[in-house]
Computed example of a mutant assay.
Amino acid sequence: MDRWQDDLIGAVSEPSEQEVFGYIQSASRALGFDHVSYGFQAPLPLSRPRLIWHNDYPPAWQKHYMDMGYPAVDPRIIRARQSPEPFLWSAELFRDVPELWADMQTAGLAYGWTQSVLNEPGGISMLSLTRREPFTPDELDARLPRMQWLALVTHKAFSRVIRARLASDSPALTARELEVLRWTADGKSAQDIAEILLLSKNTVDFHIRNSIMKLDAPNKTAAVVRAVLLGLFQ
């Protein structure tokens, strides 16, 4: 194991996202990259999923990227949502948004590589490595295993601290509310659940109403979906 890989193991136990990102930056520099970006898209809210983003791109580029609304049309993000296969950036990838590709060229961010991880349940993480010079085929072949290893460790390290943050923001359902919601997810009616758990139907309905309220859901079906996406059944 290379020294940078050995050092990177420490990122897995760091307590904050900023400290984890510091390790990732150092590792990306050791691999010959100028910039690194890591994004995590949480599964909720469904209509506008929460995005957590860390990168060391120039501040002017970060502002321009957001001001232009590029996150909504960036083909790297779209592709990362569809497949965990790593890919190089290219003009072909950006054919539908040539203005973004041109702006990246101007900013010196044209040569990059992205690896995504499709999390369970429902989340997506994405690591991108960027530099000023293009890759040669031999260079890419030689570095690819270490780049993928970096993506895996980055995902593991960030997942731990981000999930802890998201868990602290999640509603606190009681053990009984979760139990009732699990049976609801299995298609059981309130009467079925009452008989299974030896409760009254009114008590089951009470727990379902509480779950709906705590999860800010319009009905019990939506409450089950949100509980699954938040990982409350794990």
Rank of each mutant, 00 (worst) to 15 (best):
R29V: 15
I24A: 05
I77K: 00
A227E: 01
A223H: 04
G231K: 04
S168K: 13
L199F: 05
Q5G: 04
E120V: 15
A194K: 04
A157Y: 00
F94H: 04
W89A: 09
Q148G: 07
L31H: 00
K220Q: 12
Y23V: 04
S200Y: 08
D138W: 00
A11Q: 02
G112E: 07
L178A: 07
T154V: 01
A107Q: 11
D138A: 03
K188V: 07
Y111N: 15
L51H: 03
L129F: 10
A107I: 14
W4K: 07
L166A: 03
D205S: 13
T136M: 08
T174F: 03
F94D: 01
I208V: 06
R146W: 04
A60D: 08
R76D: 10
F233Y: 01
Y38S: 05
V153H: 07
F135M: 14
L88T: 03
H64E: 14
D67H: 12
R176A: 15
T174L: 07
H54L: 13
D216N: 15
R209I: 01
Y65L: 09
V180Q: 00
R143G: 12
L127Y: 01
L31C: 00
R95W: 09
S116W: 03
E99I: 03
I193C: 07
L229P: 02
M68K: 14
A217S: 14
F33N: 12
E179W: 05
A167R: 12
Y111S: 11
G39D: 05
L118G: 07
Q234D: 15
R50I: 09
P137Q: 00
Y65S: 11
T203Q: 09
W53N: 07
A110R: 05
V228D: 03
H155W: 14
I212K: 10
P137D: 00
I193S: 05
S83Q: 12
L51Q: 08
H35D: 05
D169V: 03
R131I: 00
